[in-house]
Structure formats: C-alpha cells, structure tokens
Design a protein around this nucleic acid. Structure first.
Lengths: 156, 156
DNA sequence: TTAACTGCAAAAGGTTTGCCCCCTC
DNA sequence: GAGGGGGCAAACCTTTTGCAGTTAA
C-alpha cells in the first residue's frame, strides 16, 4: 500500500478556484442527460468538486460523513452512474481501488512518485496531441487516455 | 465487463517467435536474482512466454490446467514475486483484474478498443521519449509508464 | 534438518446486488 | 399506486494469508 498520501488523507483538501461555476455546469449536464440530481448524488458531486486529489469511494464517503450521511452502496451506485454518463472519470491505481474525478477538462497524465506514492497531475498539450496522433495512425478515434508516469523523486 | 476477448479467451494463443531464447534469458535472470525456479514457477513463466496477450491470474491458471496443475495461490505468489523482482509487469485494466506480461522490452502503450475491448500493443519511440522528457521536466527520473489509449474502432 | 515452497481453505477488501422501505408524481 | 432512489446486509470476485504437509538444499 502506498505510503505518503498524508495531506489529502487527513482531510484538509482545499477548494478548487472556480468550483461553483463548474458545479453549475455539471448540474446542467446531468439535467440534459436525464439524471435526477438527488440529495445524495449532489453530495457526492460536491465532494468531487471540492477535491484536488482523486478520492476513492470509501474516501468520498469519509469526507461526506463529517456532516451528512450517505450509504456506501449509494456512493458506488452514484459513481457508476455518473461514470457511465461520462461525467466522472474512473482511474485504477495500483492499490486496487478505483479513484474518481470530475471529467471537467481534457484527459491528463498522472505522475506517480514511486518513492512516496504521491500523485501529481500533469498538463502537457504536446503529449496529449501526440497520443491522439498515435491513435489516429492506428485507425482509431481517440476517446480518452490514461497515462501514469512512474517516476523516482529527484529528492536527495 | 469487457465484451470481446473471444479469440484469446478460447485458448488459441500462439507462440511468439524467439520464445525459447527469451525464456533462457529469463531463466538466467532469475538465477542471478537468487530466485529458485521451481516446477510451478517455470510453468507460470512458460504460459506468459507463450502468451501474445496479457492474461490475468485466473486466466494463467486456466491455461496451465489443460495439462498440469498449480494452485491459484501459488500462481498469485509467483506473479507477485516475479513482479517485485522486475521480471514481470503488472497492468490494471478496467475489469478490475491485474494482467501480466514479461518485462522483456521497453514500456509500451496499450490501445484499447472501447467497442470490442480488444487490447493492441503500441510501439512508438517518439512517444516514449516525450513521456521521459515530461518526467524529467517535473524533476523525476522515469521509472516506467502505463499508457492506455482508449479508442473507438474505425470499423463501420 | 532446516528453510523454502505448495496446496487448501479461510479471510480480506473493494464492489455489486437483492430486498424492502420511503418518497414523489 | 407505480416507479425510482436509498439503506442495509448479504453476496461476489479477486487477491492475500494461515497452516500443515512436501520438497529440496
């Protein structure tokens, strides 16, 4: 099991700038897809909206349960529904748990520090473009990609 | 669950050219790492050597059990040991099972046809180089990468 | 003989499902 | 009163582990 995800795990995840606006757009998206935004689903979305990391189902529930209460099964059902609807993105990391994020922006790589387990989001337009080109060359239309770069920290 | 992995699942996986030589080198590698190649471990390696796909633990055992017999726990223990030794590479795909391949060559992307579930191996030196550069730019030394490109088949 | 390895069965951990209640339309 | 959603607990599936028997150095 990964060692150091202390910061995020302790619960002090901060708010992403512009979260409100994004939430409204997700809400609209759900509406247009015919997904009823119940209390529980809204709560799950809120947690993901506020997260700056990629929480798993139990972690999402843990964050919820500070104040409110949603059954774990409901969290899973919500995550599955929203993933199938294309609103969330599910990623599998090596700890065996699925982790989720709002599919608000383009697919982006994750860099995983193999020494600490820390996950860093990467933004690189060139890389994304090149991946798209590879898919095209093989005769496919790029739908999405999952790139995990495992790196050893330059730390001393 | 993924739909079409019919061909490989039916068991008609073919032999990779040059498999014998490669097997000897794996065997040597195990020796130099102090890993005893028992009957069971050799069988697991043989299956992986002959595979052209990326079988999961139960699938490996299924292929074994045509003739011989290895306990599933042993398959798992072997896969873990060889993965930790750096001889195998474990990849997580979206069906929740870990799949394995012999780490004989450089890390390479997988293209997954989202319509059929088919997995295609991709070779692209430029892409690999660019991923390495990204890691370096962020201050890491590239250890490995996992790139899954999800594409929609150009099929009619 | 000791240490490593295997098999079996049970346990573990994440995820899904069945069932029933509740709420809404 | 029909239908969808949620809670709870049980089921499921992959993977791990404890233990006892076996093999090998």
């Amino acid at each position: 099991m990964p060692a150091g995800r202390s910061a995020a795990m302790e619960g002090d995840y901060s708010t992403r700038p512009g979260a409100d606006t994004a939430f409204e757009s997700v809400e609209r998206l759900c509406g247009s897809l015919g997904i009823t935004l119940t209390r529980q689903r809204r709560i799950v979305l809120e947690v993901l909206q506020q997260a700056t990391d990629h929480p798993c189902a139990t972690e999402i529930r843990r964050r919820i349960s500070r104040k409110r209460r949603v059954a774990l099964a409901t969290v899973y059902r919500t995550l599955n529904m929203l993933t199938e609807a294309g609103i969330l993105k599910r990623s599998l990391f090596s700890d065996g748990r699925a982790r989720y994020e709002i599919l608000g922006r383009r697919a982006h790589p994750h860099l995983i520090d193999v020494t600490t387990g820390e996950i860093v989001e990467v933004d690189d337009e060139d890389l994304a473009r090149q991946i798209e080109k590879v898919a095209q060359r093989l005769g496919y239309r790029l739908v999405d990609f999952h790139l995990k770069i495992l790196g050893a920290g330059a730390a001393k």
